[in-house]
């Protein structure tokens, strides 16, 4: 019962941005993929979610090869992406955003998804206050909370988070990451935290990959990766 990518190669047009990516994600765990901008993080997220066709390799979710499945089919089977920049439906209310997230769960376990959403709303009551506001009018931090709640409404088995810290202050990043841990613990979803903010991401992750120029240059338990030189090199050069 895992999400596995084997030998992924992907990119736009002729350019290959990712090559020979292997990674594994298990339910209930938080795995970080860290790298500086331009390393290929979003390409990885989009490829796993099915928004970008891969050129080579396989993606297997719970024993099923999904690389030929459309994005919506992957979402319905519980492989959920929170895209970079959150991409809320800004003209719709918070409630509508979260309700539409539930569409991916509607054929599996809508009831459990609803409970999980309630749980999140209880621990972040600010969203209840914003319930009927247009999502486009919320602050960056609130928007990220809505995006995460929307994803939980989809009852994810595997949740891919593409740079949830984007544009947030370190304090807000920390709050968002607290929410991520909560989601992992309460929903049992496997979370792939694709992040630039390495230090904070490594704090909450169990395992980590370092992505540099489209390749994985280091991997291991996050404490080891954090103390290795690989991260520093990937960000600040040699």
């Amino acid at each position: 019962m895992t999400l596995q990518a084997r030998g992924l190669e992907a990119g736009y047009g002729r350019a290959a941005i990712l090559s020979s990516i292997d990674l594994t994600l298990e339910p209930g765990g938080i795995v970080a993929v860290i790298g500086s901008n331009g390393a290929g993080k979003s390409t990885l997220a989009r490829t796993l979610a099915g928004l970008l066709r891969l050129k080579q390799g396989e993606i297997e979710a719970d024993g099923v090869l999904v690389q030929d499945h459309s994005a919506e089919r992957r979402a319905r089977s519980g492989l959920i992406l929170v895209p970079e920049g959150r991409r809320l439906f800004g003209r719709q209310t918070v409630a509508e955003n979260i309700r539409i997230g539930g569409r991916a769960a509607s054929r599996r376990s809508p009831e459990r998804a609803r409970q999980n959403v309630e749980m999140l709303l209880d621990s972040f009551p600010v969203l209840r206050e914003r319930w009927n506001q247009k999502a486009g009018l919320l602050s960056g931090g609130e928007q990220q909370m809505v995006a995460l709640t929307r994803a939980v409404a989809s009852e994810p088995r595997y949740l891919l988070l593409d740079e949830p810290s984007l544009g947030l202050s370190p304090r807000l990043t920390q709050e968002v990451f607290r929410l991520v841990t909560l989601i992992a613990r309460e929903t049992g979803a496997g979370i792939l935290l694709i992040e630039q903010m390495a230090e904070q991401a490594l704090q909450i992750a169990d395992f980590a990959y370092v992505l540099e120029q489209g390749r994985i240059t280091a991997e291991g338990p996050s404490s080891e990766v954090g103390s290795s030189e690989a991260v520093r090199t990937a960000y600040l050069g040699k």
Binding site: Q92, E96, I100, R103, A104
Partner: peptide
């Protein structure tokens, strides 16, 4: 709701399991 979502952002709508 699905139609409004598609109209606003088709790609993200696909991520919600809607074609």
């Amino acid at each position: 709701g699905d139609m409004r979502a598609v109209s606003e952002d088709a790609e993200t709508t696909a991520l919600m399991g809607i074609s």
